[in-house]
């Protein structure tokens, strides 16, 4: 009996390593489609109950965009008319998608979306919600996509503190899904509780200036040259519904340049 026990455990561990590798996050292949449609049905059902809140969020977002419309401003300079012309080349493209499965309570959280390769999604696209950043697409099948949530111990995202323009790294060390930590901010700059943190745009994945969260706790551990900063995330991961997938239209060019730079 001990042998059977060992064999089953070895099988399980092999599965764990093969399919849950933090970095690899291999999708489930065939099973992906089945589990996807299963979760979609389940989700469609529950979504009715949160329609009121989603409507509210959308209205809020609409209001924010209306503020940015040219018609909301007094035109004092003719430059604004060139908006879609040579001066402003489109850099990011937004596609809307729906979350069909999501977790916040494991060490490596992933989100599944109801759009995939056929709808134009690809690896390394950013995922944001109306309130802030959500994660990065790590795997796509024909009709579904897996997103590594920022609530994942392997997730690293380059961010910037709004007030002093310092660049740091967003990471998550487990525990509550409401908080993440901000690393690599040197102790000689001043950091204040309540400061806003945005994406830096350095990663070629997230657009610059997407909301991440606000600083909720700052401390320095003895002997360290960097702050220990806790961040209150802007997004409530437990109630994710609609998200946008962001495609960086110039990513290929940026990566190519970076590669050729490395080779020299």
């Amino acid at each position: 009996m001990f042998f059977l026990f060992i064999i089953l455990e070895v099988f399980s561990i092999l599965f764990v390593v093969k399919y849950n590798g933090y970095q690899k996050s291999v999708a489930f292949g065939q099973f992906d489609e089945l589990s996807g449609s299963f979760h979609r049905t389940y989700n469609n059902f529950w979504e009715y109950f949160s329609l009121r809140k989603i409507n509210h969020d959308l209205a809020e977002e609409n209001a924010r965009y209306r503020k940015m419309l040219p018609s909301a401003f007094l035109i004092t300079d003719s430059l604004v008319h060139y908006k879609n012309d040579t001066l402003y080349r489109q850099h990011y493209q937004y596609m809307s998608a729906q979350v069909i499965s999501n977790s916040t309570n494991t060490a490596a959280n992933y989100i599944q979306l109801d759009k995939g390769r056929l709808q134009g999604l690809n690896k390394d696209m950013a995922v944001i919600s109306p309130k802030g950043i959500v994660g990065t697409v790590v795997n796509v099948s024909n009709n579904f996509a897996w997103v590594m949530s920022i609530l994942n111990k392997e997730s690293r995202i380059s961010v910037r503190i709004k007030k002093n323009a310092q660049i740091g790294t967003l990471a998550w060390e487990g525990g509550s899904y409401l908080y993440a930590s901000l690393k690599d901010i040197p102790t000689h700059v001043s950091v204040i509780k309540g400061d806003t943190v945005f994406t830096s745009g350095y990663s070629h994945v997230f657009p610059k200036g997407e909301m991440v969260g606000t600083i909720s706790e700052v401390s320095i551990k003895p002997g360290e040259h960097f702050y220990t900063i806790q961040l209150r995330l802007a997004v409530d991961f437990n109630s994710l519904g609609h998200v946008y997938v962001v495609k960086n239209l110039l990513r290929e060019e940026q990566m190519k340049l970076q590669e050729s730079n490395k080779n020299e």
Binding site: M1, L4, F5, L8, E9, F11, S12, I13, L14, F15, V16, V17, K18, Y19, N20, F28, F31, S35, F38, S101, S103, T106, Y110, Q112, W146
Partner: peptide, 26 residues
């Protein structure tokens, strides 16, 4: 042992954690 394995694996399949629940159940 084998039913525990099947049980854990079934839970795994729906929680994107293949192997974890199976190992713990066994």
């Amino acid at each position: 042992l084998t039913t525990a394995f099947a049980l854990g694996l079934s839970v795994d399949l729906f929680s994107n954690s293949l192997g974890i629940h199976a190992a713990a159940s066994v």
